[in-house]
């Protein structure tokens, strides 16, 4: 990977490594670190159901890891802030529910339908990728509200109305757990591909200066679209698998804006733009959240809020971002 000559991150110029050998070496170390991270994730989640009874804790940890990672594809790598990220999650949940319950399809097909629905909605709103910054954020927020409204206006026979859908005889938490595991592995693979391939480099170039990227021959529209599609497919799949896990879907929980907020907070707490950022952020905050609600049943939300504010004030670039800033010589080793 020799195309990584000079990188500008957060407005700071990172000195290019002196020689080809150094680049090779740092790339190698970075890949090793990333490989180790992935290995740890697999080692934790793959055998866990055999030993532990806290399946839900691990299931939702995978859910948030995946949500934060795929949020990073579009926010960290492409520089978009989709405030309506929950739209894809909700559409995925409903696609799964409607295909399984209303149309009687088997669960794997219903889940494929979730992914397809997410991509479809993503493609429908792809023209808004032309918008920049806060404008894009607002449009995507409106999208989430519009999707909720569309589903609420659909016939009750299909979507279950305000009572939502309860997926009869679909209850198989272990299978749903491994489905979520596969989705998470997919997101890890996509992340690896995005960051190590030319596509990732092109995305970062667009994020930092889209006009300059275009001048050097990056196909801005196509590149963005690829990242966007990945960023829409995963939350839809996650929504679908979560619906399977809890067997219950309703409008309020499927289109809860907190889903977006948590994805953003988890990804940013780790550090946007780094592959490991969302993983570190989601694991840390999810763990802290678990500790807080277990120990402070009444004040849990307040304390969590204070923790998040403190984190954002003290480490505005996230945990990994702060580390990279403090020890800038190690930055090139951070995946």
């Amino acid at each position: 990977m020799t195309d990584e000559v000079k990188e500008v991150r957060d407005g700071e110029v990172v000195p290019a490594p002196a020689s080809q050998g150094n680049i090779e070496k740092s790339n190698h170390i970075r890949s090793l670190i990333w490989g180790a991270v992935v290995a740890v994730i697999i080692a934790v989640f793959l055998p866990a159901p055999l030993f532990a009874s806290n399946l839900s804790f691990l299931f939702y940890m995978m859910l948030w890891l995946t949500m934060a990672m795929s949020f990073n594809f579009v926010a960290g790598m492409a520089g978009y802030m989709p405030f309506g990220y929950v739209a894809f999650y909700g559409v995925g949940a409903y696609a799964m529910g409607v295909l399984y319950k209303t149309f009687g399809m088997p669960i794997p097909i219903a889940l494929a339908g979730s992914a397809a629905a997410g991509i479809l909605v993503g493609l429908l709103v792809a023209p808004t990728l032309r918008l920049k910054g806060v404008y894009f954020g607002i449009v995507s927020l409106a999208l989430a509200m519009a999707m909720k409204l569309v589903i609420s206006l659909m016939p009750r026979d299909i979507t279950g109305g305000s009572l939502g859908l309860i997926l009869s005889s679909a209850n198989d938490p272990l299978a749903a757990y491994y489905a979520m595991f596969l989705v998470m592995m997919g997101a890890l693979a996509a992340g690896t591909w995005l960051s190590m391939s030319r596509l990732g480099t092109a995305l970062r170039a667009i994020r930092d200066d889209s006009e300059a990227a275009e001048v050097v021959g990056v196909n801005v529209v196509a590149t963005r679209l690829k990242a966007w599609i990945m960023a829409t497919m995963f939350p839809a799949l996650v929504g679908g698998v979560e619906a399977w896990y809890t067997n219950a879907i309703d409008l309020d929980s499927s289109f809860n804006l907190l889903v977006t907020a948590k994805s953003i907070v988890y990804a940013m707490a780790g550090g946007l733009g780094f592959l490991v950022g969302p993983i570190v952020g989601a694991s840390a905050l999810y763990g802290i959240d678990q500790l807080i609600w277990r120990n402070f049943p009444t004040l849990n939300l307040l304390i969590l809020g204070v923790v998040i504010i403190a984190l954002m004030l003290l480490l505005p670039r996230g945990i990994v971002g702060a580390f990279a800033q403090r020890f800038s010589r190690f930055r090139r080793f951070i995946p």
Binding site: S56, F57, Y60, L63, E242, T298
Partner: peptide, 17 residues
């Protein structure tokens, strides 16, 4: 008693806990 924040995800985690 534990808090579920009216959140389906929390319910699954809290009942398990």
């Amino acid at each position: 008693k534990r808090d579920d924040r009216s959140d389906k995800q929390m319910v699954a985690r809290v009942y398990e806990d």
